[in-house]
């Protein structure tokens, strides 16, 4: 009967063995790691899950050479605009998508390798004042961008060679869209979270804006990570990077909220809070697992269905953790330090 409850988290209960260090890679030329991700890469008939590391001015692809050993195979040099984010593309092979900009995204580019002339290529997908971007199934990208007068929400399809095909626009809400999530199990549904803390739902096929539902004032600037539909309800996983600690709820990091899209009413289902004594977080979600870098330099991992913190990776002696991303497949956590060291943990 308790819609939203705080599960007490005791650090003693956290099973350190739930995260097992598998391997490390270190880019000796790097001193400014900004993001890490994984991508499927096929070469000479062999398809492998590779690691992509991004610094401000270059992006590198790392292949597994031997067990627990990674080798850098390609490095794309970028121009004057710094890389600020890698954009994972689900179900895609041999394509790396990056967002570049200063304080916010100004460009989206694709990076690829051409075997025809043995060269590394870059392809410009979009420019503008881009507020959010997400890679969708079937080699598509959705983004929101603002001009002074209006907001544009656009989907572009990408070819295998990195060319962009005709775009499709979605009806924009009045407020700025800050994050997107595909609705799992519903091919044509997409959700977004906005600057005034609303969830919006689109029909991807028709571009219609179907519903706008308010998340509530307790958790400002909520960010959607995952969404799925079940039994007539829309479940959305939200993170709350700026929520303040409260007596009733502790320090909220993630919530699963059930929305009834017919009535726009909602209820919290599971609540995941920060471990006691920790603050600040920048999170990533895969399946029912969430990970976040805390301001202490530790990484916390939660089971979102239980609402429990399941692992806490203390700051590495060589330097605090700065990045926490899930690999696009398998239960693998990519933990990064600013000096370019990436540690792969099995979860």
């Amino acid at each position: 009967d308790i819609a939203e409850h705080l599960t007490p988290v005791l650090l003693d209960d956290l099973r350190e063995e739930s995260l097992q260090l598998v391997s490390k890679l270190k880019d000796s030329s790097s001193s400014c790691a900004v993001d890490v991700s994984t991508v499927w890469w096929e070469a000479a008939g062999s398809r492998e899950l590779c690691v992509v590391t991004a610094c401000e001015s270059f992006v590198s692809l790392w292949k597994p050479l031997a067990p627990h050993c990674w080798g850098k195979v390609y490095t794309w040099q970028l121009g004057e605009i710094p890389v600020i984010q890698l954009v994972p593309l689900p179900d895609t092979c041999n394509l790396v998508c990056i967002a570049l900009g200063d304080l916010e995204i100004g460009e989206i580019r694709l990076l690829l390798y051409s075997s025809e002339n043995d060269s590394l290529k870059q392809s410009l997908v979009k420019t503008g004042n881009i507020k959010a971007v997400l890679g969708l199934r079937d080699r598509r990208l959705v983004s929101s961008s603002r001009t002074r007068q209006e907001q544009q929400v656009e989907i572009v399809s990408l070819s295998e060679t990195g060319r962009t095909r005709d775009g499709q626009t979605l009806m924009p809400p009045e407020e700025t869209v800050l994050a997107f999530a595909e609705v799992e199990g519903m091919r044509d549904a997409l959700v977004g979270t906005t600057a005034v803390n609303s969830i919006v739902v689109w029909n991807l096929k028709t571009g219609q804006l179907l519903k706008k539902m308010h998340v509530g004032y307790s958790y400002p600037t909520s960010i959607c990570h995952r969404a799925y539909s079940d039994s007539g309800l829309l479940f959305v996983v939200l993170s709350h990077p700026h929520a303040k600690e409260s007596e009733c709820c502790g320090n909220p990091a993630f919530r699963v909220i059930a929305f009834n899209p017919r009535t726009a009413r909602s209820r919290g289902v599971v609540f995941s809070s920060l471990p006691p004594g920790h603050a600040g977080r920048q999170g990533d979600v895969t399946g029912a697992s969430a990970a976040a870098v805390l301001t202490s330099g530790a990484i916390a991992v939660w089971d979102l269905l239980l609402g429990q913190c399941t692992a806490l990776l203390p700051p590495d002696p060589a330097g605090p953790w700065a990045l926490a991303r899930w690999a696009t497949t398998g239960a693998c956590l990519l933990a990064g330090q600013r000096d370019g060291t990436i540690s792969l943990y099995r979860y």
């Binding site: 029909n203 219609q208 179907l210 519903k211 539909s229 309800l233 009413r265 209820r267």
Partner: peptide
């Protein structure tokens, strides 16, 4: 979650909202 909290639930909410929303 129950209907008393969230109002009438429809399994076909996506199709229904698509039929009702402006094109």
């Amino acid at each position: 979650c129950s209907e008393s909290d969230l109002g009438p639930i429809s399994l076909n909410w996506f199709e229904e909202l698509s039929a009702e929303a402006p094109p």
